[in-house]
């Protein structure tokens, strides 16, 4: 499987770039806390679909870029995404065949792990100020999962990404 030529790597990177753009897109103050963690969602999809193309290293790199992009502590998103990625990678064979709502539950769990690591890092470096809305992106992330799945699966089939 991994001997097959990589195809459509550009599509993967462009979609991740799209996720990075979405995460800093200006939104009205009211809905900003509900913005889903797009890079995490997109990475979960790609790792589940193509674990031999997108892996822990990719997740770590995206996390590092995300850290610079949002000006957070360097390495915190990188660590969170890398750990989330390895959890997804070890269970991708099972989750791939789940119905969508069960997958959404799994995504909820993964996003919670991701957010927990972020909170843990922020807490241990004394940068944790506002805990009461941290659940919001996790829940909206779960609700957006079916659409992310639909969109990225369409892209993957349309451009025959392998």
């Amino acid at each position: 499987m991994s001997d097959a030529p990589a195809q459509g790597r550009g599509v993967i990177w462009l979609s991740l770039l799209g996720a990075l753009i979405l995460i800093i897109w200006p939104l009205p103050d009211m809905i900003v806390p509900f913005r889903p963690d797009w890079p995490a969602l997109f990475l979960i999809y790609w790792i589940m679909a193509l674990p031999h193309r997108v892996n822990v290293g990719t997740a770590w790199c995206v996390g590092l870029i995300l850290d610079v992009l949002t000006g957070s502590l360097l390495g915190q998103h990188a660590m969170a995404l890398a750990i989330t990625a390895v959890l997804v990678a070890t269970s991708h064979l099972r989750v791939r065949v789940f119905p969508v709502w069960q997958q959404a539950m799994f995504v909820l769990l993964m996003l919670t792990v991701n957010e927990l690591i972020l909170v843990l890092v922020e807490g241990s470096t004394g940068r944790l100020y506002d805990l009461e809305w941290r659940w919001a992106p996790i829940v909206t992330g779960m609700l957006f999962w079916p659409w992310v799945l639909f969109l990225l699966r369409f892209l993957r089939r349309r451009f025959d990404v392998r």
Binding site: N55, V56, G57, W60, L73, L74, G75, Q76, A78, M79, A82, I83, A85, V86, V121, T125
Partner: peptide
């Protein structure tokens, strides 16, 4: 791989 990356992250953080 993930252990190495996490270790690296902790160092960077």
């Amino acid at each position: 791989r993930v252990s190495l990356l996490v270790l690296l992250s902790v160092v960077i953080i």
